[in-house]
Amino acid sequence: MQFLGIHHVSLLTSNAEENYRFFTKVLGMRLVKKTVNQDNTQSYHLFYGDAKGNPGTEITFFDIAGLGRTYEGVSSISSTGLRVKDTEALMFWKKRFTEIGVKHEEIVKRAGRDSLLFQDSEGTKLILVADNGEKGVAPGVPWEREDIPSKYAIIGLGPVTLTVKEILPTAAILTNVMGFRHIGSYPSLKGDYAPIEVYATGEGGSGAEVHIEARPDLPRERPGRGSVHHVAFRIPNEEEYNRWVEKLKATRLPNSGRVDRYYFKAFYFREPNGILFELSTDTPGFDADEPIETLGEKLALPPFLESKRAEIEASLRPLELN
Results as ranks from 00 to 15, higher is better:
Pro223Val: 05
Gly226Asp: 11
Gly226Leu: 06
Gly226Gln: 10
Val228Tyr: 04
His229Asp: 12
His229Gln: 12
His229Gly: 04
His230Trp: 01
His230Tyr: 01
Val231Asn: 01
Val231Arg: 07
Ala232Thr: 05
Ala232Phe: 03
Ala232Val: 10
Arg234His: 05
Pro236Lys: 11
Asn237Ile: 04
Asn237Val: 02
Glu238Pro: 05
Glu238Cys: 09
Glu239Trp: 07
Glu239Leu: 06
Glu240Lys: 14
Glu240His: 03
Glu240Ala: 05
Asn242Ser: 08
Arg243Pro: 05
Arg243Lys: 15
Trp244Glu: 08
Trp244Pro: 11
Val245Ala: 15
Val245Thr: 12
Val245Trp: 03
Val245Ser: 06
Val245His: 10
Lys247Asp: 07
Leu248Gly: 12
Lys249Arg: 14
Ala250Glu: 15
Ala250Ile: 10
Ala250Ser: 15
Thr251Asp: 08
Thr251Glu: 15
Thr251Arg: 10
Thr251Asn: 09
Arg252Ile: 02
Arg252Gln: 10
Leu253Glu: 13
Leu253Trp: 08
Pro254Asp: 01
Pro254Ser: 01
Ser256Cys: 04
Ser256Asn: 04
Gly257Ser: 11
Arg258Pro: 09
Asp260Trp: 01
Asp260Cys: 00
Asp260Tyr: 07
Arg261His: 13
Tyr262Lys: 08
Tyr262Cys: 05
Tyr262Leu: 08
Tyr262Ala: 08
Tyr262Ser: 07
Tyr263Asn: 11
Tyr263Thr: 14
Phe264Glu: 05
Phe264Arg: 01
Lys265Trp: 06
Lys265His: 14
Ala266Pro: 09
Ala266Phe: 03
Phe267Glu: 00
Phe267Val: 01
Phe267Asn: 00
Phe267Lys: 00
Phe267Trp: 01
Phe267Met: 04
Tyr268Met: 02
Tyr268Gln: 00
Phe269Lys: 06
Phe269Leu: 14
Phe269His: 02
Arg270Asp: 02
Pro272Cys: 08
Asn273Trp: 02
Gly274Val: 07
Gly274Trp: 06
Gly274Phe: 12
Leu276Ser: 04
Leu276Glu: 12
Phe277Met: 13
Leu279Ala: 14
Ser280Cys: 14
Asp282Gly: 05
Asp282Gln: 09
Asp282Leu: 07
Thr283His: 00
Thr283Phe: 02
Thr283Met: 05
Thr283Asn: 05
Pro284Cys: 03
Gly285Met: 01
Gly285Glu: 01
Asp287Asn: 09
Ala288Met: 03
Ala288Asn: 03
Ala288Thr: 12
Ala288Gln: 07
Glu290Met: 09
Glu290Ile: 13
Pro291Ala: 00
Ile292Phe: 13
Ile292Thr: 14
Ile292Asn: 08
Ile292Gln: 09
Glu293Gln: 06
Glu293Thr: 07
Thr294Asn: 11
Thr294Met: 06
Leu295Gly: 02
Gly296Pro: 02
